[in-house]
């Protein structure tokens, strides 16, 4: 004969039991959540405290390094002054000014038959000179030397003849203005 199961508990007890079970589960979950939150809070606060200590140590190390560097500021100043001077000296040492280069060039380009009477170079490197030349060929050679790039090394921008005359003695007297590049 099959057993007959009769639930003699009143219906409200059953409801109450279900509620209690549900509340228990929710409570367990809630307690776990709050415990996790508290744990994470404690952990982050502890990590922050450790980090603050580490930062303080690093700051102390930084301060000591800065003090060490402050003691070396004279060396740094000397080094910077030396670099400053060397940069400028390098610009000038071994490099002649335009005036000297132009004078050098003119000396090379003047052919033998030409005698320079007066010569001037101004601040911009422009040259004005007067010369006496004994013959026409030397005049041509003089002008060719200044005009042709293969002769003047491409360093002359412009040449103008301010005056040219020939005396009864056959000597040419001329005045030239040269603008270098």
């Amino acid at each position: 004969m099959a057993k007959i199961s009769i639930d003699l508990l009143p219906a409200e007890f059953k409801t109450e039991e279900i509620k209690r079970t549900r509340f228990y589960k929710i409570s367990v979950f809630s307690v776990a959540v709050i415990l996790l939150a508290v744990f994470l809070s404690s952990l982050t606060v502890a990590l922050r405290i450790l980090q603050s200590r580490r930062l303080a140590q690093i700051q102390t190390q930084m301060d000591q390094t800065e003090i060490r560097l402050s003691g070396l500021k004279n060396t740094q100043a000397s080094l910077l002054l030396l670099k400053n001077r060397l940069a400028a000296i390098d610009q000038y040492l071994g490099n002649f000014s335009k005036q000297v280069q132009v004078y050098d060039l003119i000396n090379e380009l003047i052919p033998p038959g030409v005698a320079i009477n007066g010569f001037s170079i101004n601040q911009s490197g422009e040259v004005v000179f007067t010369a006496t030349v004994s013959d026409g060929e030397s005049v041509d050679q003089l002008i060719d030397n200044f005009i042709l790039p293969q002769n003047n090394q491409g360093k002359i921008k412009q040449i103008s003849m301010d005056a040219i005359s020939r005396g009864r003695d056959g000597v040419y007297r001329l005045s030239l203005k040269i603008q270098p590049k």
């Binding site: 000297v100 010569f119 170079i121 101004n122």
Partner: peptide, 22 residues
């Protein structure tokens, strides 16, 4: 001129005027 600009003191030729006797 070159010695002046190569001397142990930085100097540059600013301008130059020459009168020569042949």
């Amino acid at each position: 001129l070159k010695d002046i600009e190569s001397s142990p003191r930085l100097m540059r030729i600013n301008s130059l005027e020459v009168n020569s006797s042949r």
